[in-house]
Amino acid sequence: MDLLAVKVWRGGKAGAFQSFGVPRHPSQTVLDVVTHIQRELDPTLAYRFACRVGMCGSCAMTVNGVPRWTCRTHVNKVIRSGGLEISPLKNLPVIRDLVTDMREFFDKWARAKGEFRGSKSRRDDFETVVPDSPERKAVDAGIECIGCGVCYAACDVVAWNPDYLGPAALNRAWTLAKDQRDVQSNERLRAVAGDAGCHSCHTHMSCTEHCPKQLSPTAGIAGLKREILKSVLSGEL
């Protein structure tokens, strides 16, 4: 049986790659490879997954240098020189092996005012949202984010500026900025402006390039810059 040469990161921030030989199978995913290692070769390997079908966003890792969902990545597509090198996502603290600490990533969603706040109660009628309106189309373009952290790991600005909110949090802020029901627009724009926010984006578009959902946080960040400028010019900010 063909064996796949797999190097897997072991340890925390300080650590080293460990080599394994994993049997090749048709339609094998990178998550299948990691699972095989843990179940058959070394039960101490730590990694994170849940749904296995690209819905939960928990199995993202760096595969041959590129951040990806391992569950939706076929080995065939990414194999290089007959092997794989699997490491934790970049720009996040490593807890152990392939598991990163995602707290800072999600704390930044909160810092970007990523929560919805409406003005209506359960006794009010439903708000009518016109599906074809430009605002709703902008929301639709970014709303499918599942928070996997791939864009955050791919972002150069996050690596250079640890306070930078990152593409996912800014994308979330953009979808709320364009949500006609939300009432904390100015507070949010203030939260995502400046050095830690959208103005630090260099438009490298690594987030857009690597997003497994084919979203464009870059477009959302550009939209936030426009909205913030309008608010500053009108004196609202």
């Binding site: 400046g194 050095d195 926010g197 103005h199 913030i228 900010l237």
Partner: peptide, 12 residues
Amino acid sequence: MTAKSETVLWIA
């Protein structure tokens, strides 16, 4: 730096 002054620097 406030959000406003960062925005002014950006557009400048």
